[in-house]
Amino acid sequence: MAEITEIRWHGRGGQGAVTAAKILAQAAMEKGFHIQAFPEYGAERRGAPVKSFTRISKDPITIHSPIHNPSAVAVLDATLLDAVDVTEGLPEDGILVVNTVDNPADVRKKLNLKGRKVFTVDATQISIDCLGKPIPNTPMIGAVMRAAGTLPLEEVISGFKHKFSAKFQKEVIEGNIKAIKRAYEEVKTE
């Protein structure tokens, strides 16, 4: 089968996991990739655990079944580590990126995790600094891109601009871009 990068996003309703999946897809599309970004729908309640997914491929994507073995997992809310098996289906060489104040080693210990590669970033603090609100989804895109190395930072930023320039004011766009850049630089690895 064709080579497809698959990313799973874990968040809580209202944190923007679906939007994150879409912004990343938009950026990849502008780089010439074929893309899918889709949510897993359950009851939509603010604060409830939610999942969303991004597929990126050089070839057209025809598959429309759920993603079970993502190459990367992004966790927008560290409290989910106690509630959801975020590493489910993540292969041995898979990437886990968590929004937390902790170091990757702490996350590894907490999850009793073997293999995989763990990254952490304090995306909540970054979004408070850059946007005045704790919405960690856009900085997490920067962190995931750094960790997964799928796309260069400039592509992610231009994807974000194109997806939202009509929807948000200039200051909001600038704040988000700042947040993406900071997370890209500050993400910690093992």
């Binding site: 599309m29 893309i35 899918q36 970004a37 889709f38 429309h64």
Partner: peptide, 12 residues
Amino acid sequence: QDGFIISHGMED
């Protein structure tokens, strides 16, 4: 079109 699979999924 298939609900959610297509209607709520973003594609190129």
